[in-house]
Design a protein around this nucleic acid. Structure first.
Lengths: 213, 213
DNA sequence: CCTACCGATCGGTAGG
DNA sequence: CCTACCGATCGGTAGG
């Protein structure tokens, strides 16, 4: 049963959709808009499962227009990942530079990373984790630099924990297991159900380091 | 500069490729072959990044023929995931039923799960972890049953560890963090480089439970 | 940034 | 399981 009466006229264009994002008319933030909505779509449907038309629709452009801002779909993916890493690295370095005691500093790191990965609208790093494989090798190289700096900060934090005798080993494997446990939360954590992000951070730290004192 | 001289004849078919898998001529294992090579391809290129033609090529069929064995690409994905879960569940239940002491039983569980996820040719569970999102809701429901039984076994193992005072808490969050750390190894573990799977299992158990004794 | 379009490719099918 | 094919869709582009 057709929902609309169809007339035999020539193919009619679908009515122009209203943009789903509100932006001041004449600013240059269209690129940032594209990155943000692409992150959300890539996270929800995957890189290959998202079409350039999906992205264009979501920001209220025509299907060819994203290519005015990016020269390929791959470039959008790289921009999404870079955005997430730059922001995450900034947070991480701020915490690393603070003078919190070791356990508190570590807790702050875990909480910050959990927020980077779980908070509403924070789709950049989840896309990095999920769609790394879809990124071309040339783009990967650029992103790996940033990832290495991120990892180095964590390794540094573990060294401080070891010095304070809060962990037995600051081996690379321990770091990978910890970050794995934290990163994998994106597979099961449901915002607003059960633990808050803060509570989850506390439980994770307790699991990693044992009870305080 | 063209590599081949092109003649103005009608489009010529590419020479028939030799199958990449060897199977006895007339057995009914074509379905199993499809599942195995699909698992590998889905893992390498993702579900959306793998075409039915990729799959057909890899088993030496024509592009339409996989649909003689499966009614859709989605059905192949579901079969891959189910295969992995059934095998993993079998291993897990065998270990759970053994009379190993708690710490040894847990170590066996971790090692078994790491092998399920890291060993050569074990692509089924990695596909489950990576492509869950790509599976249709109807298929998901069937797979969730198996997943729940898997999780229940782990929760049971944690309860035994708690009873033996080897962990402080057998909360659901602890299970999720542990399994997350183990599952995330598929993102960084390189077979033949660094630790063996057995060594990794030992290190993980030591990290989760602390030093023995 | 839109219009109009293209070549390539995709999942799937009918008929044998 | 192959042959032959289809309608739909995709990333991307030329020209404005």
């Amino acid at each position: 049963m057709p929902t609309h009466a169809t007339s035999p006229s020539r193919p009619r264009r679908a009515p122009r959709k209203r943009p789903l994002v509100t932006v001041s008319e004449d600013d240059g933030n269209r690129r940032a808009d594209l990155i943000r909505v692409s992150a959300r779509l890539f996270r929800e449907k995957g890189f290959d499962g998202t079409t350039v038309r999906d992205i264009a629709d979501a920001v209220g452009m025509r299907s060819g227009s994203p290519f005015y801002h990016f020269k390929s779909k791959q470039d959008i993916l790289a921009a999404v990942m870079e955005e997430g890493l730059v922001a995450g690295l900034q947070d991480t370095e701020r915490i690393a530079a603070s003078d919190l005691p070791p356990r508190e500093k570590f807790r702050a790191l875990v909480r910050s990373h959990l927020e980077t990965v779980l908070a509403e609208g924070h789709d950049f790093i989840p896309v990095l984790l999920h769609e790394w494989r879809a990124l071309s090798p040339e783009h990967q190289a650029r992103i790996i630099d940033l990832k290495d700096r991120y990892d180095a900060r964590w390794q540094q934090a573990l060294a401080e924990l070891k010095k304070a005798r809060l962990i037995r080993s600051d081996s690379k494997v321990v770091r990978l297991l910890m970050l794995g446990a934290v990163n994998f939360t994106i597979q099961w954590y449901k915002p607003g159900k059960g633990l808050s992000i803060d509570q989850l951070a506390d439980q994770a730290v307790e699991f990693f380091l044992g009870e305080p004192g």
